[in-house]
């Protein structure tokens, strides 16, 4: 949003959510990964079809929100709709053990020094 009130879309958020402000499921937080299980069909709400297209590859909720330029709460409502109709699946990113996969800071420092010496 470069200049608010300028060049934004004419549809208001309550028409996007059909008046709801609360997601029907709390399966989604910011980093939940969403994968679409189905293709978009014509006549679908454009946000829904865009989500389905975007999430053919696992995508985080916050990324969907940024891409659609919609607030996360609204995106969660849209995702809940899709989840309820079985068009997407959601899963949480695997955080356990990820610290073990990170290279230790010593190695990183050496790489940094090597890069600077180039």
């Amino acid at each position: 949003m470069t200049r608010p009130g300028r060049d934004e879309d004419p549809d208001r958020l309550y028409t996007v959510t059909r008046g709801r402000s609360r997601a029907s499921s709390d399966a989604f937080d910011l980093v939940t990964l969403v994968v679409s299980e189905s293709d978009a069909t014509p006549g679908m709400q454009s946000e829904h079809s865009r989500i389905l297209r975007m999430c053919q590859y696992p995508t985080a909720v916050v990324e969907v929100s940024a891409e659609l330029k919609l607030p996360v709460t609204v995106v969660r409502i849209l995702l809940s709709d899709l989840l309820d109709s079985g068009l997407i699946t959601a899963r949480h990113p695997q955080t356990a053990g990820s610290a073990a996969h990170l290279p230790d800071s010593n190695l990183l420092e050496q790489v940094l020094v090597g890069l600077r010496n180039l």
Partner: peptide
């Protein structure tokens, strides 16, 4: 101007109750 500000606030406030009120005002 008010609609733009409301849109802005809707982006800023993640709380569902606040969003609900904002959407009402927006409407």
């Amino acid at each position: 101007g008010m609609l733009a500000e409301l849109r802005d606030m809707e982006h800023r406030h993640g709380d569902e109750d606040v969003l609900g009120d904002l959407l009402l005002l927006d409407h």
